[in-house]
């Protein structure tokens, strides 16, 4: 992978972390929306899991970002266990090195942060799963889309999934009805 792609990804993480303290799930899903909804070429290849779209390369890049002091992580203690949150690290040089990427895709990055940055992990998992199924599983219509998502997320009600679908339509991520 060309170094410039990695630098762009790391710069993206700093842009996320500058605005909101995020955990791994949120960063994973924001990258997914940015690439698969706005077409920003991050070079990730997401697979679908019960917890939504996932690419282990995102974790590898987060590890690199920490190693380079581009990001720093803090342990967060939740009632049901511990996790991580990321914030901007002391080395900000990556923003200069990938300035072209940040400038070129600034609008899309802001769009993702504005619309998805404050959502809970559960909401992000559901919304990203809806987009994934719509994009890659060729549903013939909305009903089939909802059914397929319900199979992956059996503990979400159909109403809940439909609400998520409508939210993505409102954001112009999905159409309300099939074209073909």
């Amino acid at each position: 992978m060309p170094a410039e792609v990695l630098l762009s990804r790391l710069a993206l993480f700093t842009e996320f972390a500058r605005n909101i303290r995020l955990g791994r799930t949120a960063i994973m899903k924001l990258c997914f929306f940015l690439q698969e909804s706005k077409g920003v070429p991050l070079g990730y290849q997401f697979s679908i899991y019960s917890y939504g779209p996932f690419d282990s390369d995102v974790l590898a890049d987060l590890s690199t970002a920490e190693r380079m002091s581009v990001l720093k992580s803090d342990i967060v203690y939740y009632p049901s266990g511990t996790g991580y949150e990321y914030s901007v690290g002391p080395d900000s040089s990556v923003r200069k090195l990938a300035a072209h990427f940040l400038t070129k895709h600034g609008t899309e990055i802001k769009w993702v942060l504005d619309n998805f940055g404050r959502k809970t992990a559960g909401e992000l998992e559901l919304l990203s799963t809806i987009l994934f199924v719509a994009k890659f599983n060729n549903p013939r219509g909305v009903d089939e889309l909802l059914n397929k998502v319900a199979l992956i997320k059996p503990h979400f009600s159909r109403d809940h999934i439909f609400h998520g679908f409508q939210e993505l339509v409102k954001l112009d991520v999905l159409r309300a009805s099939p074209v073909n």
């Binding site: 799930t25 266990g81 559960g122």
Partner: peptide, 13 residues
């Protein structure tokens, strides 16, 4: 299998 903190995921892993 672990139920993860809700802040990280709704799904067990």
């Amino acid at each position: 299998a672990v139920r993860r903190p809700r802040e990280e995921s709704e799904e067990p892993k």
